[in-house]
Amino acid sequence: MTHGETTGDQVCRVLVYVRGRVQGVGFRWWTRARALELGLVGHARNTDDGRVEIVAEGRRGDVRRLLDLLTEEPSTTRRPGRVTAVSQVQWSLPRYDASSFVER
Results as ranks from 00 to 15, higher is better:
T6L: 00
T7Y: 00
Q10R: 00
V11E: 11
C12I: 07
C12T: 13
R13K: 12
R13M: 04
V14Q: 09
L15I: 10
L15C: 12
V18A: 09
V18K: 10
R19I: 01
R19C: 10
R19M: 06
R21P: 02
V22G: 10
V22E: 10
V22T: 12
G24A: 04
G24D: 08
W29A: 13
W30P: 01
W30A: 08
T31K: 04
A35C: 04
A35K: 02
A35M: 03
E37M: 06
L38D: 04
L38F: 03
G39D: 05
G39C: 02
G39R: 03
L40N: 05
L40Y: 04
L40F: 04
L40V: 06
V41H: 14
R45M: 02
N46P: 00
G50C: 01
G50H: 03
R51G: 05
V52R: 12
V52G: 08
I54K: 08
A56N: 06
A56T: 06
R59H: 12
R59S: 07
R60T: 07
R60L: 11
R60C: 02
G61A: 15
G61V: 05
R65G: 01
R65I: 07
L67R: 08
L67V: 03
D68R: 14
L70Q: 14
E72Y: 12
E73C: 02
E73W: 13
P74N: 09
S75Y: 15
T76Q: 14
R79G: 06
G81F: 07
G81K: 09
G81T: 08
R82S: 11
T84I: 09
T84L: 06
A85H: 11
A85M: 09
V86T: 11
Q88V: 08
W91E: 05
W91I: 01
P94Y: 12
R95D: 09
Y96P: 01
D97R: 10
S100R: 15
S100T: 15
S100Q: 14
E103N: 15
